[in-house]
C-alpha cells in the first residue's frame, strides 16, 4: 500500500537538466536484487559518486550539498524520467526520501510509476520552477489538498504557485489507495465485460499454440 500524501515542507534541490533518464536515476548495475528495497545507495550513482564502486561522494552533486542533504523535493528539467520503464528508479527515489518532483514534463511511464508509489509528480512551467529554484535554500511547502506550492520564512513569504494534477491521481495519492484492492471490488463487472468480449473476439481467448 503506497504512503498517503498530504503536505510536505522541505528544501527543494535543483537538478535542472532536461531528459534525465531512468538509467541515470537508477543505473542498471545498481539493481542487484529481486527487491523493491536496498536501492537508495544506487540512486543517481553515476553523478552522486566520484567513484560509484567505492561510493566516494561527488561534492558537486546537488544532493551531496549540505543544504540539500535532507531534501524531499526535487526541481528538475523537461522530460524527467524518460527512458526505461524500470520502477526501480521510483523505488530508489522513494527510499531515499524524495516525495515530490517538480518538472515541466515527465516521461509517461515514470509519471505513472510515481503515482503508484506515493510520489507526487508536479508539472509546472519552467519559469515557475526557475523562480522556485532561485531563492534557495529556503524551504518549500507542497500541499496536495490545496494544490499549492509556497515558499517559506524569508522575503519570499508570499510567493505561491498553484498546480493541478488529475483528480484521480490526487485521490490516489491523498488516500494512499491500493489500486489492485480497488479493482478487485469490480471483479464481477470485469467478468461481464470479458464474457461479452469472448463472443465478440473468440479467437483472442483461444491458445493457438503450435509446438515447433
Amino acid at each position: 500500500m503506497p504512503q498517503a500524501f498530504t503536505s510536505i515542507t522541505s528544501p527543494a534541490a535543483p537538478l535542472m537538466q532536461a531528459n534525465v533518464d531512468t538509467d541515470t536515476i537508477m543505473p542498471s548495475r545498481e539493481m542487484r536484487q529481486v527487491s523493491k528495497t536496498g536501492l537508495k545507495d544506487g540512486l543517481f550513482a553515476n553523478w552522486r559518486y566520484l567513484n560509484a564502486a567505492e561510493r566516494v561522494p561527488n561534492p558537486d552533486f546537488v544532493l551531496n550539498q549540505p543544504a540539500y542533504k535532507q531534501a524531499q523535493i526535487l526541481l528538475v528539467g523537461d522530460n524527467f524520467g524518460c527512458g526505461s520503464s524500470r520502477e526501480f528508479a521510483v523505488w530508489a527515489l522513494a527510499e531515499y526520501g524524495i516525495r515530490v518532483i517538480i518538472a515541466p514534463s515527465f516521461g509517461s511511464i515514470f509519471f505513472a510509476n510515481c503515482i503508484r508509489n506515493g510520489l507526487l509528480p508536479i508539472v509546472l512551467a519552467q519559469a515557475d520552477i526557475d523562480s522556485l529554484a532561485a531563492p534557495m535554500p529556503s524551504p518549500v511547502t507542497v500541499d496536495l489538498q490545496t494544490q499549492m506550492i509556497s515558499l517559506g520564512e524569508n522575503e519570499n513569504k508570499n510567493k505561491k504557485f498553484a498546480f493541478t494534477i488529475d483528480e484521480t491521481y490526487r485521490n490516489m495519492l491523498l488516500n494512499g489507495l491500493d489500486e489492485i484492492g480497488l479493482t478487485e471490488k469490480n471483479r464481477a463487472h470485469i467478468t461481464d465485460f470479458i464474457t461479452a468480449d469472448q463472443a465478440r473476439r473468440p479467437w483472442v481467448y483461444k491458445q493457438h499454440k503450435q509446438e515447433t
Partner: peptide, 22 residues
C-alpha cells in the same frame, strides 16, 4: 505499451489497467 511493475501487477491480477486515453 511499457508499464512499471505496479501496473503490471495490477494487470496480471485484474486483466485491466486504469488509463486515461492518450
Amino acid at each position: 505499451w511499457g508499464v512499471g511493475s505496479s501496473e503490471t501487477e495490477h494487470a496480471l491480477v485484474t486483466k485491466t489497467l486504469y488509463l486515461k486515453k492518450p
